[in-house]
Nucleic acid binder design. Structure first.
Lengths: 218, 218, 218, 218
DNA sequence: CATGAATGAGCCTTCATTCAT
DNA sequence: GATGAATGAAGGCTCATTCAT
């Protein structure tokens, strides 16, 4: 199965979705502020705009909230990326665009990503795989982009290199979110995107590569 | 000040160090398994080999344990790296060696790094800066290595590029620790080191010089 | 403000009052038996007839219970006295009646008064003033009674004498409560009231007028 | 027996006395500040100038400290009074002097008296009688003074009146200590002594004493 | 469906007391 | 005799979860 169902006592599917959206929105704000463990179910209910009793009509345990939050975040990010990338053909330019878009999404959803990033480990062994699977899918999207460039002959990379780079891109995206305390002092988002793309494509040492066309920026 | 002192009731400094080492060792194992919040102080005491009362002779609050753990990890990693790197001159080879060493340490201290990585955010506003400072120092070590290569003329990099790359190396090191669930399926440590070094130095495509055509975010 | 509000999580004011009444009743019995410090919150909850969790729905800290107890005792005593005294005109007879009533209340509420008397000092600096204020009000009631007798010409007393006597009456009332281990062996309540009133009004020796030959300390 | 023995592991009687004096002195200061229950044995040991281990060489339980403190206070007060009163003959003047002296002692030993007064109830059922007995002895001293005045024909009082007045004097003495928060605003010690003595001897209204409606019990 | 009062397991921390050195 | 590290029972308080209304 692709989703881990979170049981609700309420039948009306539309209502369930509505309530859960309220819940997720409130929870993200709280988790961001104090983390999952320091947030109480009462606080979540209040932030969501209903009572603790009602909260438990739509979830079974507190952990369900975390799962719902993580799930929702991945869905949003995933969706955002798929929109942008799905159509593109496998050119280097579309890869660059893909990376730039991803970093941009990471910037926009900074709060959510940070939350998810710090709290996934709190998911039970039960829910974790579903979330990890989502992550693999996203890495897979970059693998796809890269592979198509390889197929096109625009890049020459081994399978392993493709996998490695996809991971690197993904982690660098997250890095912009969870290391912003350090990075923001050094770069704007635009600079970050440009620098990372540049480094990714050309490497740091001209002598080592064949061409030596490393730009002396600044 | 460079350290945030954790108060102990016991006077004998040697004993304090010994007990805290026991404590940290036990705590790391537990935190790795269930995280900071799900670990109880009693469990920590037990894992350390003494009673809950004794635990509190060496710390003031549960959070002190976390701080001690984080502090100790950074110290160990830092020390390990300094040993390896301090003597080297600023050649490309010493850079490669530095990276390889760092990744290796990250592999050896995988458990600790994972823990620290996931739990720093649980540190109070009081202790966090001390830990973050340590992290900056470690990034600084790579900046140093890189700068020396630039001075030597072995690399041609701007200040910002140096900073960016240092961060990338650092995060890739951590990545080996906290994404091992994915990476281990694909690479051995040796492959990981080799691949990342290669990518770092040569970029993914010699043919593509940095055109500066990176899409500007809206 | 006249009251220090004790925060409750439960909204229903009627319920709050009911539960707190249960709580106070149970707490008085326990405090009387073992004192505030030796009584646990769990015991209070049990004596009140609900769980520890419920107890904390109606208070914030254990000290709140003590404050509630003290506050309630003063309220009861105060109310009892005001009923009896408010209407009376300022005659000697009404003074005598006031004293007798007060001593009687002290006898009836012996347990409560004892508790309050022994435990006020455990109140935090925060709550103490509110309780002390209540005590001053009660002393004030006797000052009032006395003053009216003075105005009526039934007594000839200076301001300071009025204040002193009011204090004496008040303390003698409490004395019946907290020294009963000694007094009960010597007097019945009726005898106590009669003797104290008599001594108050006539002095111990008519022959000896106030000579002012009291030895001046140093 | 007149004393409840507090067991000590140390044999040297002189040392035991010395250590206990240190202990009592430190404890009184602490109890005064924070009460018996909020004072830890460690604090007592520290205030006494030795280690917790040493403390327990001279007592068996924390309560022993309280008993020692109470016992010592009574001894001091008792001794002070006996010195002053023992020699006097039973005249009204010596009564007045006795009262004045007592109030003065209560003022000087205010801290100690306050402590004892608030903490006796914390004594176990085992130790309480010994302390209460001391208190009765002190009340007895005033009964004595009064009785001798009666024998001398300087006062005309029944047995019960004598007992009552002795209690009143005693409580008024304590009152100066434990109600000073209120009394100090109104009176100096000298005024207090003078006023109380005056009221005691003459009653509040000589005119009233004429009515004879006061039952001469016994 | 919604509410919120009730529950109690469980957590962090303190502190009186012991005992090996 | 003195010391202080070790112990663990016990206390105050929180909070996820339930259920009657």
């Amino acid at each position: 199965m692709n989703k881990r169902e979170v049981q609700a006592s309420v039948k009306d599917e539309r209502l369930v979705q509505k309530r859960r959206d309220q819940m997720i929105k409130g929870a993200v704000a709280l988790f961001k502020q104090k983390g999952f463990h320091r947030t109480t179910t009462r606080e979540i209910a209040k932030a969501a705009g209903f009572s603790i009793g009602t909260l438990y009509e739509y979830i079974r345990t507190k952990e369900d909230v975390l799962y719902l939050v993580c799930d929702s975040i991945y869905d949003h990010v995933s969706e955002r990326l798929q929109q942008d990338l799905a159509l593109k053909k496998g050119t280097l330019d579309s890869l660059k665009l893909g990376i730039a878009n991803f970093f941009q999404v990471m910037d926009e959803m900074q709060a959510e990503v940070l939350v998810m990033y710090q709290e996934v480990k709190s998911l039970s062994k039960d829910a974790l795989p579903y979330v990890l699977k989502k992550e693999m899918e996203m890495v897979g999207m970059f693998e796809n982009l890269l592979s198509r460039c390889v197929e096109n002959g625009e890049l020459h990379l081994s399978k392993k290199q493709v996998a490695m780079i996809a991971h690197n891109i993904f982690v660098q995206g997250q890095m912009w979110g969870f290391r912003r305390w350090a990075l923001r002092k050094l770069f704007t988002l635009e600079e970050y995107i440009e620098l990372q793309t540049e480094l990714l494509l050309s490497g740091i040492s001209a002598e080592v590569s064949a061409t030596g066309t490393v730009p002396k920026s600044e």
